[in-house]
Design a protein around this nucleic acid. Sequence first.
DNA 1: CTGTTAGCGCATTCAT
DNA 2: ATGAATGCGCTAACAG
Lengths: 348, 348
Amino acid sequence: MSDRPHVTLEDVARSAEVSLATASRALNGTTRVRDDLRERVLSAAAELAYTPNAHAQALAGGSRRTVGVICHDISDPYFAAITRGVMRVADSHGLLVMLAGTFADPDRELACVSTLRAQRASAILLTGSAFEDRAWERRMAAELEPYRRGGGRVAVVTRHRSLKADTVAPDNRGGARALVEAMHGLGHRRFAVVTGPTRLTTVADRVAGFREGLAGLGIELSERDVFAGSFDRDGGYEATKALLAAKHKATCVLTASDVMAVGAVSALGAAGLSVPEDVSVTGFDDVPLVRDFGLTTVGLPLERIGAEALELALDDAGGGGARGRVRRVSGEVLLRGSTAKPRRRRRG
Amino acid sequence: MSDRPHVTLEDVARSAEVSLATASRALNGTTRVRDDLRERVLSAAAELAYTPNAHAQALAGGSRRTVGVICHDISDPYFAAITRGVMRVADSHGLLVMLAGTFADPDRELACVSTLRAQRASAILLTGSAFEDRAWERRMAAELEPYRRGGGRVAVVTRHRSLKADTVAPDNRGGARALVEAMHGLGHRRFAVVTGPTRLTTVADRVAGFREGLAGLGIELSERDVFAGSFDRDGGYEATKALLAAKHKATCVLTASDVMAVGAVSALGAAGLSVPEDVSVTGFDDVPLVRDFGLTTVGLPLERIGAEALELALDDAGGGGARGRVRRVSGEVLLRGSTAKPRRRRRG
DNA sequence: CTGTTAGCGCATTCAT
DNA sequence: ATGAATGCGCTAACAG
């Protein structure tokens, strides 16, 4: 029982009466070690409750046992689900996940990359939507480039024309289109969109999909049909309040995410309107618990998306050279109780 | 543009034509450095996109810029909310969060501590419930003890008589009792409990609270009134199916968490029963989105709990010596639409 | 198969 | 105020 702050490999070696190298080898199993020696080392290590210093290991050129995940907000079930997928495969590779939250602040996102770079994460996953901002993209690319040169892998979810990183790309646009068509099929003709800030590519893509789908059906979405808030539950609530205040006559409210949809439904309820009797509401993502409340939405395999992002980043087949592989993931329209045929128009 | 894998401080120093020490000092601002030199260093660093190697820094005895959070499953909104709180304060301290998921496996939890120990996290937060298992507790204590001796801080949420770590303790028992009393006040007399595995202390405490509250009202909860499943949405669903299959005549189903309650409500719905008309259902936690669906529950300030756990761990006032401070957090009964007065008994 | 030794990149003494 | 030198704990050559 030394009084030193940490038990080191040297302590173990001394206690087992072997050399440092032997102790290291015994512990790592990299080279054969005489059985009795290995036993001695192992039991000495256990005895002393030895834990290798991961920093020293990393520095000595050994492992890189961490991956970084950057998301906007882990309490958003979208990111939670993706992160869960990441953690599953990280776990199976013996990797530890370092989680950074940006709260959708572009500068923070840049800073997170820098931090993860400092930690020599073996991979960095950008799971949050990109920002539609040329200058930002450039700075991000500049931050990522040296990271890669140092052997770091990068994968992104949903983004980034210019980033040419391995990408898992949910088909937001196509899903949105299909959803709109389904709603049209139900008989809806008057739509409104409740959305987050369109500088987020995810949001922009979904809204673009709504607009395209509608246009294809001969319905134009004007600016006055779009209500934007923050990209979360409260944003959905506020945007819907604005929609109500504007006395919008939509029979179907398309929201940019399940989370926003929850806010939308609440706002509608608070105004005495019921879903879907008075108005239909759709979400996007099909996040776990919200699913139980019967929201019509576009289902995305979130957990798998996270898992694939890490797999892609870790997979060397791309060759450390030719990166920029894109894995497309399509969404599936899930019709549930939050949507119904519109009532006949009230007056004429 | 060297071709070396990483730009090091030495590269910066050389490029700025100063010594390594000066470069280090200029970057860290620890000692005064002549202004022009500092400028040169800074711009050289920027030029080369230098990022300090956190491992080297940590090894050299500098920083400890990470904290470890161990939870059962980040996609559970309970943990997501707590983790969000942790991340907020971590962020404000310039710390990076390393997230480990155990999926409620005691052995994995032990392994996670070991990993985090290896990473020399400045603090380890055990946010998941403890396991009611003497041997496990002992092993956990044995793992934590050397970590602390090395200067590591430990804080836990909800647990551990024997661990004597700084603790943030939600009053699960009291909240459960109060909830039961409120339901009794509504007129309910026949209760059932839908719960997770009672080897989790959180679950055990809540069920104990239900039982105590009921006992205080002269109602006994027998084993046949308790239906256990996994501590998640599906567990709630399955346990409720079992309850239904057993033709339990409860007018009020008390579940061990909001997440389980969601499963319970779904199972009830699938069986053609509506909430609260046919049966009342309660949750526990008041997690964000579920909140919007009007579940009666016991509200816990999850995010604050996470934040306090980290603050406690980081706060040295305890003195590196006398640890084991306990911050109690009480819950608040929130009556919402998932509960109502029971209907008059069907027959007699 | 084992022991000795040289760094990994940095912060920090210690001398200037 | 600056520079040279030491060591953090470990792995991976390198010799024996």
